[in-house]
């Protein structure tokens, strides 16, 4: 029911909203099921639903069908050090590392069908679509640059992120509800960090980019989680004293409750 209403809202918005992709006969209207994902004490992950509709701009007849959609969701940027273990003096320790500068903490690439069937590889690379083509800048000496796609650190980084469900590549996650209406669910794992998540939706027809639409949602801690996380960082000393007092209270209560003499 909620989804149906949302679709109606999108259609309505599409009819009213002006503007669109330059030179294209179609416009893309998208909406998210929520713009704020709240982390409370029972948060175990969430799902943000993306809805979209292809609308004509009134000047040229709208193509019916044959559309493809690729949605890229990029989470807040973070700097991560990827470490490689090697055997040294008989034990396995981290010997080598690369620092990935300002890479997405979260990256989901969702499509209507395998990306290489939507676009040729060089176009995918230029549009930076998919894990293979995303730019992951590394600190290399004094320079910051992306490396070749088969770089072991880059591959390990993508693998680890994918294992933790923070990087997602799903070429069948976008469902066409009708030739011009589509829907996709964006999985947000519990580990996803707080911040702004930008949703970029690209519309393709016959191997060409027709238009795109961007929106965003935000992940924030609320209530008790927010209070604790903020207190721990902003008033570290006070937070520590309160935690220590809590420990002493618990210990004292136990010794009173379980007193045997």
């Amino acid at each position: 029911m909620r989804r149906a209403l949302l679709v109606l809202a999108i259609v309505a918005a599409g009819l009213l909203a002006p503007g669109g992709g330059a030179g294209a006969a179609e416009r893309l209207v998208t909406s998210l099921s929520t713009h704020r994902v709240l982390i409370n004490s029972v948060f175990t992950g969430a799902e943000v639903v993306l809805f979209g509709a292809v609308e004509g701009d009134g000047t040229t007849p709208v193509r019916r069908g044959g559309f493809d959609v690729i949605a890229t969701v990029v989470g807040p940027r973070q700097t991560l050090k990827t470490l490689r273990k090697d055997r040294m003096l008989g034990i396995w320790i981290n010997v080598d590392s690369r620092t990935f500068i300002d890479v997405p903490a979260y990256l989901a690439v969702l499509g209507t069908r395998p990306f290489d069937r939507i676009l040729p590889p060089d176009r995918l690379r230029r549009l930076q679509i998919g894990h293979r083509n995303v730019v992951l800048p590394q600190q290399i000496g004094p320079d910051i640059a992306d490396v070749v796609t088969d770089d072991p650190f880059r591959q390990a980084f993508l693998r680890l992120k994918t294992e933790r469900k923070l990087y997602i590549e799903d070429p069948t996650a976008v469902t066409m509800l009708s030739p011009t209406l589509f829907q996709a669910s964006i999985p947000v794992p519990a580990e996803a960090p707080v911040g702004t998540y930008e949703v970029d939706v690209k519309l393709f027809h016959d191997g060409a980019l027709v238009t795109r639409s961007t929106s965003a949602f935000e992940i924030t801690k609320v209530g008790f989680e927010r209070f604790v996380a903020t207190a721990a960082v902003d008033n570290g000393l006070l937070y520590g004293i309160v935690t220590a007092m809590m420990a002493l209270m618990t210990g004292w209560l136990a010794s009173v409750v379980f007193r045997r003499d």
Binding site: A232, G236, L237, Y239, G240, T243, A247
Partner: peptide, 22 residues
């Protein structure tokens, strides 16, 4: 030592999870 480690870790590294601790 542990009570003061709690305070010091909180003040310098902000890593004490009070909920987990409780």
């Amino acid at each position: 030592t542990m009570a003061s480690a709690t305070v010091m870790h909180s003040a310098t590294n902000h890593l004490v999870d009070a909920l987990l601790a409780l």
